[in-house]
């Protein structure tokens, strides 16, 4: 090919192969598709953030002393890693998708990632405040088999009788000082209170409790403090306090 006729060669090829410029419609559709994907990734990331906020708010951080752990150690042991991994994954793919937008390359990776994290936190707070985080957590508890078993560390963390903490559902009230519970693994425990239990309202059958005290025998636990295992939720910006469900799936299997 000589230098002189390259334009002729190109035009001949265009005519011969009937090459046409890509239509504007296709290009606009591609742009809209990328922006739609970006929006979806941001929404998923924000929903994950809302569940992280929900789990942090229900962290029972004061129990770290009971487990002889520093607050930081307790935080690391019970962080909602599943949701944090989801959040990081969607931030990363959002960053890569953003690079495919027309001017996306002009922005530094860190500015895109920081902006995405900030937007996820703002939207996450909004979703948490309208109650979406709890809906997601409950749905995953019910429908995703491995969610509680592997991913919700907190309940496992709160069932360590040898370290003075036990969590379970009340299934039999014996008298003012004693009752029975079934723990996360389906084990039955006789709970003896040092003093008369003043908050008798807590001893409702099926109510999940956190009991702090000392293990006395294989199935006997002496309680020095009893409190309901609750969760703080929000619905349309109003806070509600509800009993938290224990992982019944595991209980049933053991029973």
């Amino acid at each position: 090919m000589s230098e002189k006729n390259i334009s002729q060669k190109v035009l001949t090829q265009i005519k011969k192969e009937k090459i046409e410029p890509t239509t504007k419609f296709n290009l606009v559709a591609r742009d809209y598709f990328i922006w739609l994907m970006l929006f979806l990734f941001l929404m998923i990331g924000s929903l994950a953030t809302s569940v992280v906020i929900y789990m942090i708010e229900n962290g029972d951080w004061d129990l770290s002393k009971q487990l002889d752990k520093s607050l930081l150690g307790f935080v690391f042991a019970t962080l909602p890693y599943f949701w944090l991994v989801i959040l990081m994954f969607f931030i990363l793919i959002l960053y890569y998708a953003f690079k495919y937008t027309q001017g996306g390359y002009k922005y530094h990776a860190y500015s895109v990632v920081i902006t995405t994290i900030l937007l996820s936190i703002i939207l996450g707070l909004l979703f948490y405040n309208i109650g979406l985080a709890q809906v997601i957590d409950d749905s995953f508890n019910e429908k995703v088999p491995f969610y509680n078993k592997f991913l919700n560390n907190k309940q496992k963390f709160l069932t360590q009788p040898d370290r003075g903490i036990l969590t379970g559902n009340v299934y039999q009230v014996i008298d003012d000082n004693s009752f029975k519970i079934k723990d996360l693994h389906g084990n039955e425990w006789l709970i003896l209170s040092k003093n008369k239990i003043e908050r008798i309202d807590l001893l409702k059958q099926g109510l999940p409790l956190i009991i702090i005290g000392q293990q006395k025998d294989k199935e006997v636990f002496e309680a020095s403090r009893i409190r309901p295992l609750i969760r703080k939720t929000r619905q349309f910006f109003h806070q509600r306090v509800m009993p938290m469900h224990l992982n019944l799936r595991i209980e049933r299997k053991v029973i």
Binding site: V10, I14, E20, P21, T22
Partner: peptide, 10 residues
């Protein structure tokens, strides 16, 4: 040049 022509609208 063929690519440029194909993407003129872009």
């Amino acid at each position: 040049f063929i690519k440029v022509y194909q993407n003129l609208n872009a």
